[in-house]
């Protein structure tokens, strides 16, 4: 069984470190492109008072709407990490996945004209690694 990115919203302090970690690990146009916080695949919505937040990130749904509506099978689950990955070479940019995800976890990068979503950083999600309060954890 693959490890799972687990979210515990009650521990979130709303610091948004996860967003920065995500943006830095997905530079635009690797390897030299700048990280764009706007294209982060995770969002932590601050709730105050008291000082806390609610992280929203792709749940890699078992019955994933994004993969289901894709007409070219460009979204496929990676057997190793369990992440649903965008196979860009198969994508025709119809963006059905963007509109189909009930949680808003698939975005469209207008500059690269490419959809993007959480890829679990190849099995080592950086958001979990840098989360100071273990609201995001990579668990067995």
């Amino acid at each position: 069984m693959a490890k799972r990115l687990t979210v515990t919203p009650s521990r979130c302090i709303g610091c948004r470190t996860c967003e920065i970690a995500c943006a830095f690990s997905h530079p635009v146009g690797a390897p030299a492109g700048p990280p764009l916080p706007g294209l982060t695949r995770i969002r932590a919505f601050p709730v105050r008072p008291p000082e806390r937040g609610i992280p929203v990130v792709c749940l890699q749904c078992d019955q994933a709407a994004c993969a289901k509506v894709c007409p070219t099978a460009a979204l496929q689950r990676d057997d190793q990490t369990g992440a649903i990955l965008v196979h860009e070479e198969r994508c025709i940019r119809c963006r059905a996945c963007v509109w189909a995800c009930p949680w808003g976890n698939v975005g469209f990068d207008g500059v690269r004209t490419q959809v993007y979503k959480c890829d679990l950083c190849g099995g080592d999600p950086q958001c979990a690694r840098y989360c100071p309060s273990r609201a995001l954890e990579q668990l067995d």
């Binding site: 969002r43 609610i54 929203v56």
Partner: peptide, 22 residues
């Protein structure tokens, strides 16, 4: 209707839903 919302607002709605849950 399930396709009409922008992804930003959907995420926000998701966050509210989680907030209600927790």
């Amino acid at each position: 209707e399930s396709f009409g919302a922008c992804e930003r607002c959907r995420r926000e709605q998701a966050s509210r839903l989680f907030l209600d849950l927790v």
